[in-house]
C-alpha cells in the first residue's frame, strides 16, 4: 500500500511544483489535474486496502473526477476570458493584486 501512497505523494508534489512554477494558466490547470489524480489514487488505494468491502472510495473518486471535469471546464473558460482581456495568459503578468 505504501508504494501506492508514495506514488500519489510524488504525483501530488509534482502537481504542486507545476502550480507554483508554471507561467502559463493552462499549464497550471494541467498541474491541477495531476494533483486531482494524485488525490484520486489515494482514494482508490484506501478503498482497496482499508475498506475493500465497500466502494465508498471509488465513488468519491468518481465524484472527484466529475468535479474536476467541471473545474476544468470553468477554468478553461476563465483562461479564454483572460486571454481575451489581457492578450495573454501569463499568470505573472496578471498582477493587479500587486501593492
Amino acid at each position: 500500500m505504501l508504494q501506492y501512497l508514495a506514488l500519489s505523494a510524488i504525483l501530488f508534489a509534482i502537481g504542486i511544483f507545476g502550480v507554483l512554477t508554471r507561467r502559463n494558466a493552462v499549464g497550471i490547470l494541467m498541474s491541477l489535474e495531476l494533483m486531482f489524480n494524485a488525490a484520486n489514487i489515494n482514494l482508490v488505494v484506501f478503498n482497496r486496502f482499508v475498506g475493500p468491502d465497500n466502494l465508498t472510495g471509488q465513488i468519491f473518486a468518481l465524484f472527484v473526477v466529475v468535479v474536476a471535469a467541471a473545474e476544468a471546464v470553468v477554468g478553461l473558460a476563465i483562461v479564454l476570458l483572460l486571454y481575451r482581456n489581457w492578450r495573454g495568459i501569463d499568470i505573472d503578468r496578471i498582477n493587479i493584486m500587486k501593492w
Binding site: L20, T21, I28, I91, N95, I96, M97, K98, W99
Partner: peptide
C-alpha cells in the same frame, strides 16, 4: 514588506503550502 504583496497568485500559493 510590501514586496510580499507581489500580486502573484502563485507566490501566495507557495506561501500557503
Amino acid at each position: 514588506v510590501k514586496f510580499i504583496q507581489s500580486g502573484s497568485v502563485q507566490f501566495y500559493t507557495l506561501v500557503v503550502i
